[in-house]
């Protein structure tokens, strides 16, 4: 019986890891690839959103709004940034996948995970 439970657990963990890996891959392909291409650090983007919106909800809404309707006004980057980089095109992705990707992005750089006591 113990062996069956252990086997079931390992199978579930393996499937979950595979699924998680897949979602991460999807995030990188659909969102972060462009950042890497232009050598824009993802931490910098998160840091700027964090400093302006403080909460995950606030950041998530602002990122979603920008990705769907990219404009200088709702971008987190300063105006001079667009002198060097062109305005990105609107992301063609359904809301569910977009929100999932945003949640993953926020979770990946979450401030709570980085902070430690000396």
């Amino acid at each position: 019986m113990d062996k069956i439970i252990l086997l079931y657990f390992l199978l579930y963990a393996g499937l979950y890891a595979q699924e998680s890996q897949g979602e991460k891959q999807q995030l990188e392909n659909q969102c972060l690839q462009c950042h890497m291409k232009h050598q824009i650090p993802n931490e910098l983007i998160y840091q700027r959103y964090l400093m302006k919106y403080s909460t995950a909800d606030g950041m998530g809404k602002a990122i979603k709004e920008y990705l769907k309707h990219p404009k200088k006004e709702n971008s987190i980057m300063p105006l001079p940034f667009f002198l060097k980089f062109p305005m990105k095109e609107a992301l063609v992705l359904d809301d569910e996948n977009l929100e999932k990707n945003i949640r993953m992005f926020l979770d990946m750089y979450d401030v709570k995970k980085k902070l430690v006591l000396p």
Binding site: E43, Y46, Q47, S54, T55, K114, L115, V116, L117, P118
Partner: peptide, 24 residues
């Protein structure tokens, strides 16, 4: 922020905590 870990500022005899905009 680009570092993998960030060391929270600690002062002797003083306790502190940070809260977000929703007071979380």
């Amino acid at each position: 922020y680009d570092k993998s870990t960030l060391i929270y500022p600690v002062h002797p005899l003083i306790d502190s905590a940070i809260y977000d905009l929703d007071k979380q």
